[in-house]
Amino acid sequence: MIMTRFFLLLALIISLASVTACSSRLVRVQPYERESLAQDKMLFTPSTAKAAFDEHVFSIMEASRGGEASFQGGCGCR
């Protein structure tokens, strides 16, 4: 378990360092080109309240969780 966590941390550091180092070579959409991306319908979760409740219900009804950027606290209904 300790080795797993070590490799997880190492992978994280390498990933972040790589992304940081290469970020200037990635796509560069200029701020004045981001009008479309700023619209609600272009957000990953257009309604955070609805998405949070949906995820809560799915976590009660199904065995899988995770893959969401938002935090979901524990409850006895899982």
Binding site: T20, S23, V27, V29, R34, G74
Partner: peptide
């Protein structure tokens, strides 16, 4: 985060960090 029910008590600590790069086009 706290969650109290008749038969269950949940308590959590959470920490989030996001690094925004590349004119806001990349976020880790």
């Amino acid at each position: 985060y706290l969650s109290t029910e008749t038969d269950y008590t949940g308590q959590s600590l959470f920490v989030d960090y996001t690094r925004v790069m590349n004119l806001g086009n990349t976020a880790a």
